[in-house]
Amino acid sequence: MDLPNPFPILRLPYLAIEEVFKSLHPIEIINLSLISKRAKAITKQMTFYSKYDICLRVDEGLGIAIRVENKLVSCTYLMTSDERMNGNVEEYGGNDYIVRRVYKYSKNPIEEWKQLFKYVLDILKKQTLHLLFITLDNFVNHNVSIIDFLRKNVKSVTECQLYQDEEDNDVDEHVAYLLNNLKVSNELQFYLNIKNDNFNLKIPKNLRQLYIHDSEWIGYERLVEIDCEHVTLRDNEITDEQWNLFLKKWMTMETNQNLNCLRLDNRELDEFRAIVLHDIPHEVVDRGVKRNLIFSYRDVKKAVNGGIDIRRIDGKIATFFVHDNVFSMSVH
Rank of each mutant, 00 (worst) to 15 (best):
M329T: 11
A16V: 15
V326D: 06
K155D: 10
D240K: 08
G219S: 03
G63T: 01
D314P: 01
L131H: 03
K249W: 07
V68G: 04
K114P: 01
N196S: 07
V284C: 06
L12S: 08
E60F: 08
S185D: 10
R84S: 14
M1G: 15
N70T: 06
W243Y: 15
D214F: 01
G288P: 00
D172V: 02
R263E: 08
S36D: 09
Q209K: 12
L259K: 06
N108Y: 12
K125F: 03
C55R: 09
M85A: 10
K195D: 03
I66Y: 00
L277S: 10
K155Y: 05
L34M: 13
E229H: 03
L247F: 15
P13Y: 11
G288A: 02
D214Q: 11
I64M: 09
T76C: 15
H282Y: 10
D299E: 08
N200P: 04
K51I: 13
K51F: 08
H142F: 12
E268G: 08
Y211M: 11
T255Q: 11
V140S: 05
P6G: 10
C228E: 06
E283P: 06
S156P: 03
W250R: 10
P109D: 01
S328T: 11
T319E: 09
L129R: 00
Y105K: 07
A303Y: 00
N196H: 11
N141T: 14
I123N: 02
L56I: 12
Y14M: 13
W113R: 01
R298F: 05
V89F: 09
T232D: 02
H332G: 08
G63P: 01
K44C: 11
L136S: 03
L269I: 14
L121A: 00
E221M: 05
N198Y: 05
N305L: 06
K290H: 13
S185K: 11
V68S: 12
E283A: 12
Y297L: 05
I29P: 05
V175F: 02
K316V: 06
V171C: 10
T80N: 08
L34D: 06
V322Y: 04
R273E: 13
T232R: 07
F21S: 02
E221F: 02
Q161F: 13
K249R: 14
L129K: 01
G87E: 10
F7L: 12
D2G: 05
N325I: 06
T319R: 15
I54N: 04
L207I: 05
N180E: 14
M253R: 12
R100I: 11
E18M: 15
L233C: 04
E221Y: 04
Y177H: 03
V331G: 03
E90P: 09
I147Y: 00
N169M: 08
